[in-house]
Design a protein around this nucleic acid. Structure first.
Lengths: 337, 337
DNA sequence: TCTAATTTGTGCGTATGTATG
DNA sequence: GCATACATACGCACAAATTAG
């Protein structure tokens, strides 16, 4: 039996991993072929100065993965020609928003064609979120997650091996050092956008932000702090509303609306009252979609670059990099403010 | 720690198997709940008179299967609520349209909470479609598929056990007798809708249908035949266009537009030319979304009831019924025609 | 901040049972 | 019967992570 691996006692890697990797590499390179017999436990243990249990453990693991096959009383045999594990990605979104498609497509396109990508949605339901992650444990090579939960996600995320985890969209403060995070800098984006729209905002009496708390369990705190900093600095009359209430919509004011559902309600209200949005009343929406380009002759939006986010996420996975990326965003001035 | 297993030394079963089975049974019965800590290796070994390595091996195996989770220096924890997955559904959509969310939500809500539901998209890419189905073979209990391919899907769909297959949205003529099918009666829906809009259509010079072939490999033939039957019967000047070409958009004509991308292009064109849609030029869109309720003060749409479709699909799976359902549709007259 | 105790992670040596040739 | 090789199991030792004090 030709030697196909060398165990280094000094290595930081455990010996059983070195054995497994050595065998996998040998199969991948063709040194070990399908059906070929491996050295016996005793033989390899003796040759590489290992305990038999260590070798046995490695062989067992490979048997369970279906890469080797044990024949009692005879030996271990190679049962697969190729052992490369293709990418098998668990993709957990909050909701089925239209702009998720942009994110998903750019993510998918930057991934190799052989990669598998399963999508799930938690719809801000904490139990669904936890169960999906729990039940998927161990099944995937990577976990890309858009949590949109404020508290207590670290316990659930902590169950995922950090090097397999990529948290999208939301910044997670105390994320494991080996996990990745690509997030929207909400405060910065809101501040930059409102600053860019400063003169237009001054045309209105007050500026309100509609958070839509009844639909979302998570409102990025950056949106609020960015808003507060802006109105304070510019001395603008303002209010912060949890939800869109029709009787609090006032002609002559401007509204920053976080959710598309609220935006639709707002537009309906304005249409019913014959208020022209962009003149009688102002509106800034969050997250761009193709339809917002034509709705009301163009809805002014604060939006992150989902195309960039998807591509960056895919690259981090493909290149096995740990990343902390602030996703670029911009304000697109159209006609509603 | 309450005892949850008894090891019998006399048993023919190996001890490590007894441990694993005991833990699985305890999870299934609810004795062990998710997040709960297991007795430490030393503790269990001591209590049941086992070697620590034996317990460690059992715990390790369960960790690899994702049923337990180890935290170094702390202990082992249960990471799954259920070891058995009763329903594990493979859901393959064409694209990430907004109205898919309505379909998905009503489908998901009619399913038991414990059901797993993995979503995939093929984006009209035949290879992606085939690969996704091939790679998922045997992994799921049910396959719900929106093919939107014209030809040769039966070979691919034939690889799925028919009683596990449910084809959505598209009618498949020679589907296996034991497979299910819930589809839009495109011809009927188009005919009914156009008949309902007859008087409004007569206000325009011609009626055109824009199929959007460059985006879709599949245009339901019923849309075309329904359109043809209507214009023939009502003697309406018409044309059938593969794609939206700006220089063929004519003031005074009406357009039935199949894809949202084309609809956006159409609206942009009209806005640039200051044409008022619903007066200078007519538009009927396909498939309703909340935003179409406010766009242009309301877009007139032909739409199937996605809520019904999702619920019917879930019921067929839950009740293990073979169904052939024509999904109800309707014409919603708003302001663009 | 350091220490001690606990717990997992890794590894060694040995022993017994059982299937194969 | 006998040597070989896998299968299971025990006991021990030390490293690394975590927690309590």
């Amino acid at each position: 039996m030709k030697k196909f691996l060398k165990i280094q006692a000094a290595s930081s890697k455990p010996k059983y991993e070195q054995i497994i990797e050595g065998i996998l590499a040998a199969i991948e390179s063709g040194t070990l072929k399908r059906g070929q017999q491996l050295p016996s436990i005793a033989e390899l243990a003796d040759e590489q100065h290992l305990a038999k249990a260590t070798v046995a453990r490695s062989y067992d693991t490979l048997c369970e993965k279906g890469i080797l096959m044990a024949r009692h009383g005879k030996g271990f045999y190679v049962s697969k020609t190729s052992v490369k594990t293709p990418l098998n990605i668990f993709l957990l979104f909050d909701t089925f928003n239209q702009y998720k498609e942009i994110l998903y497509r750019s993510f998918r396109e930057a991934l190799p064609a052989a990669a598998q990508c399963s999508i799930f949605f938690h719809h801000y339901n904490r139990e669904v979120f936890d169960n999906l992650i729990s039940d998927s444990a161990g099944k995937y090579t990577h976990y890309v997650i858009v949590p949109h939960f404020e508290e207590g996600i670290s316990a659930t995320l902590g169950r995922i091996p950090p090097e397999k985890l990529l948290v999208l969209d939301q910044y997670v403060p105390r994320l494991h050092a080996r996990a990745s995070n690509i997030y929207q800098p909400f405060e910065k984006d809101v501040l930059t956008a409102l600053a860019a729209a400063k003169e237009d905002i001054r045309k209105y009496n007050r500026l309100h932000v509609i958070l839509g708390r009844s639909h979302f369990q998570y409102i990025p705190s950056g949106i609020l702090s960015g808003f507060r900093k802006f109105v304070k600095k510019e001395q603008i009359a303002h209010s912060i509303e949890s939800d869109l209430l029709e009787d609090r919509i006032t002609q002559g004011d401007a509204y920053l609306i976080f959710s598309d559902g609220d935006m639709i309600g707002f537009v309906k209200y304005a249409q019913a009252r014959k208020l022209k949005i962009g003149r009688d009343i102002g509106m800034i929406s969050y997250d761009d979609t193709p339809l917002k380009g034509v709705l009301l002759n163009g809805v002014s939006v604060i939006s992150t670059d989902f195309q960039h986010m998807g591509k960056a996420a895919a690259n981090a996975i493909v290149n096995r990099e740990i990343v902390r990326i602030e996703n670029p965003g911009s304000f697109i001035k159209r006609r509603t403010l």
